[in-house]
Design a protein around this nucleic acid. Structure first.
Length: 634
RNA sequence: CGCAGGGUAGAGCAGUCUGGUAGCUCGUCGGGCUCAUAACCCGGAGGACGUGGGUUCAAAUCCCACCCCUGCAACCA
């Protein structure tokens, strides 16, 4: 039997899973399920990356040992995958013994090739990022762009992998395998990176303790990427090279978001080339999600509320929307209003209603699956449409064009609605036309059976509910037909009782949707965002009179202010220059957070923060009437 | 010249690699049907494919230049 091995990245456990993780994993799940439908022997891997300084830090923040912290985080991911109906066969945890032993074997193998050497590594380093910065990436203050902390100049003896050696071989491989990297835009990008030259990669960290030691020099911890990438092999038994490993390596698809394609398409293949192992067949980097046009951002509170949308529309609708609405390689803009529109138009009106109307007719006039009779047993147009749909679907799935794959299935769905309309089935109730009606309804039932199969990778639960109503579900868990069965018309057994149940996708009106979301948000603010009075009392707010203001040179947004708070004068940097001229703020009485720790912005010291309405434009919070400078505000 | 992505009907998007009648969904207007979840079916209107140049018999698609938007990064204490 043909094997098919697909992976998602192992997700870093220093934070909770979000919609981006879900997007990648759902896409991988669709492919895994699709290939199972084709009768392949599938292995689907996802998991978590549990090593590295960030995990150590996150653990410390919660006062936990790293391992305890990981033990707490891993199930959170697993729970989400269960909720999203992810059919992974393996869940990798990089703290597992199997992985650790596999990594040791892999690194040893690399070491033996002679492509690993020791050298001094020096540069500006950010400890929290575990990353060195090149001269080009350095800002004038030499701070880390993410953590804003001063970078340290670090000189370390470290081990390197001779990545540069594989430049030519990688170019050749990518050229010889046009489908190695998807989409084409990423492929071109990586080719140009390759052509401009590769630098050897440091594969060890001396300053990190939470990780897997290099087997040949245990003073060092292996660099997370080296360890993480090898999970794709360790997960299927690389350590012992057992039958599972023989079956599934090399992987067919490594699925991921576009930001990490470089590691997968250059570093990983190069390492495999070094140890003389076969390369994965496809590296697929999909686009990022935005929400209503804005980038997702934890700090700005822009996130996709999966819980709310799933509560309103269901898991399958969520899966459907993600794959139907977005072109997989490009960035996609997640809009709840679009999910709503898709749900009603595609799922409720087109598909759900089709099932319901067909079952309604069957129920009323036959009560069971009618026997198709010769002559004119089956309608050729419908049969041909099925053939085309199945063939097209296969091509599109191969190209990771999920949006067009679903569009193709929906053309078929609409085709059946059209068929019913054209034949005016509901008029054929008289005795002499009843056979004809039976034939047509049989065709419709067949079409629905096939639709259930075709959508099952995307919406597994819906597929089952459809089959139940169609009378086809068996008692076994996994009763879905194969893709092959779609090619053969006439599989539905006549005589079976259909059970028209509730609509599978009841329409959701806008008001309902908004109410649900609002209710959800209310409970969240109620329970999660409350602070205690003691917290509030920590804030020291004071009335401050601006006595001087000037722009900070070389900046667009910053003003340097001197303010009077009675007992003393403070210097404040405020990001209001786009909305206030220096002149216009002088004399204003504003509200100052007086006990905020000082910060230096653009080399200017700031000893506090002004309160302002952060809209467009920014508006300073002032007092209704003048009070003595320094007055406490509560 | 910081890096990256994008500009195609009122909205959201395909199509661009591999030039050849501009496509999908929603919305909108008109009609039909009444089996069905106020669903379904048919038809119409609506487009200088950001701008300007070039290559070509032919450009949304290839080349050059420019404009605009959005992320990231800066300068949000």
């Amino acid at each position: 039997m043909d094997a098919f091995y697909i992976t998602t990245p192992i997700y870093y456990v220093n934070g909770e899973p979000h919609a981006g993780h879900a997007y990648t994993t759902i896409a991988a799940d669709v492919l895994a399920r699709y290939h199972r439908l084709k009768g392949k022997h599938v292995s689907f891997l996802t998991g978590v990356d549990e090593h590295g300084a960030n995990v150590e830090k996150a653990a410390a923040r919660e006062g936990l040992e790293p391992q305890i912290y990981c033990d707490k985080m891993a199930p959170i991911f697993q729970k989400l995958w269960k909720r999203l109906n992810i059919s992974n066969d393996i869940f990798m945890r990089t703290t597992s013994q199997m992985h650790k032993r596999g990594v040791a074997k892999f690194i040893n193998a690399l070491y033996r090739t002679g492509d690993i050497y020791q050298d001094k590594y020096q540069g500006y380093y950010c400890r929290p990022c575990e990353q060195f910065f090149t001269d080009k990436e350095l800002n004038p203050q030499k701070t880390c762009p993410i953590h804003k902390l001063p970078l340290e100049w670090v000189e370390e003896e470290n081990y390197f992998f001779a990545l540069s050696k594989y430049q030519k071989q990688l170019i050749e491989h990518i050229n010889a395998n046009p489908n190695f990297i998807y989409p084409t835009s990423r492929r071109n990008e990586l080719l140009s990176v390759l052509k401009s030259g590769l630098e050897d990669t440091c594969i060890s960290r001396a300053s990190v303790s939470w990780g897997i030691p290099l087997p040949f020099d245990e003073k060092y911890i292996s660099y997370v990427w080296i360890e993480a990438l090898s999970n794709y092999m360790t997960a299927v038994g690389y350590e012992t090279e057992n039958a599972q490993y023989q079956t599934f390596w090399p992987a067919d698809v490594h699925m991921m978001a576009k930001d990490i394609t470089r590691f997968h398409a250059l570093l990983w293949p190069a390492m495999l080339m070094a140890v003389n192992l076969p390369l994965p067949k496809h590296i697929v980097g999909h686009g990022w999600l935005t929400k209503n046009g804005e980038a997702l951002s934890k700090t700005r509170g822009i996130f996709i509320d999966m819980d709310a949308d799933i509560a309103t529309y269901g898991v399958d609708a969520f899966r459907y929307y993600l794959l139907r609405e977005f072109s997989f390689g490009n960035d996609g803009d997640y809009r709840p209003s679009r999910l709503h529109a898709r749900y009603n138009a595609d799922l409720a009106n087109d598909l759900g209603n089709l099932l319901n109307r067909v079952l309604g007719l069957v129920n009323k006039h036959f009560g069971q699956i009618p026997e198709p009779t010769t002559p004119g047993k089956f309608d050729d147009d419908i049969k041909n449409l099925v053939q085309e749909t199945v063939a097209r679907l296969d091509v599109l799935i191969q190209e990771f064009a999920f949006d067009r794959a679903l569009e193709t299935i929906w053309e078929f769905v609409r085709g059946i609605n059209r068929y019913i309309q054209k034949k005016e089935v509901w008029t054929l109730t008289r005795a002499e036309t009843k056979l004809k009606m039976g034939n047509i309804l049989y065709d419709c039932l067949e079409a629905l059976r096939i639709i259930a199969v075709l959508i099952s990778p995307f919406m597994p639960d819906t597929a089952h509910r459809m089959r139940t109503q169609l009378g086809l579900a068996s008692s076994t868990e996994d009763d879905m037909d194969t893709l092959q069965s779609c090619q053969e018309w006439g599989q539905s057994p006549p005589g079976l009782t259909v059970s028209r149940g509730k609509p599978i996708f009841p329409r959701v009106d806008t008001k309902q949707a908004n109410q649900k979301t609002a209710a959800k948000q209310n409970t969240e603010t109620d329970t999660q965002n409350l602070i205690t009075f003691a917290d509030f009392k920590k804030l020291e707010l004071r009335a401050a009179t601006v006595i001087a203001a000037e722009p900070i040179e070389g900046t667009d947004k910053l003003l340097k202010l001197q303010v009077d708070i009675g007992t003393e004068k403070r210097q404040i940097v405020a990001g209001i220059a786009e909305h206030y001229t220096p002149k216009s703020v002088i004399g204003k009485q504003v509200i100052l957070v007086a006990n905020l720790e000082p910060a230096t912005i653009r080399n200017v010291k700031s000893e506090g923060m002004l309160l302002a309405g952060r809209g467009e434009p920014v508006v300073l919070a002032t007092l209704d009437a003048e009070v003595p400078p320094g007055s406490t505000i509560r």
